[in-house]
Amino acid sequence: MQPTIPDVVQTIPLPYYIWFASALFVIGIVGVLTRRNAIIIFMSVEVMLNAVNLLLVAFSAYRSDPAGQVFVFFIMAVAAAEVSVGLAIIVMIYRNIQSIDIGLLNRLKG
């Protein structure tokens, strides 16, 4: 009998997923905190998102609850829309200051 996707997923123990997702998430955080290039920061944010997605899929499979996977699809669709907006903002920033270094965007201060 052909194994189902949950079965395939479950061949790897759950803690592995958690550790992997956490590692991805921390990589994302570190990227956001340390890099000054807007596009890299943006990519790091995506990494963090996908870390969460992975975790959701893993839990969904282990609990045999499809709701988690539905969530993931929503997050992907929204993230796609968000990417287009985010990239458009970065393009506009570049047009205005000929750079995408967020260190230069400090004029809005108290």
């Binding site: 000054r36 967020i102 400090n106 004029r107 201060k109 108290g110």
Partner: peptide, 10 residues
Amino acid sequence: FRLAQTGATG
């Protein structure tokens, strides 16, 4: 309090 608003995104 307004000094907290540095303007630096990072």
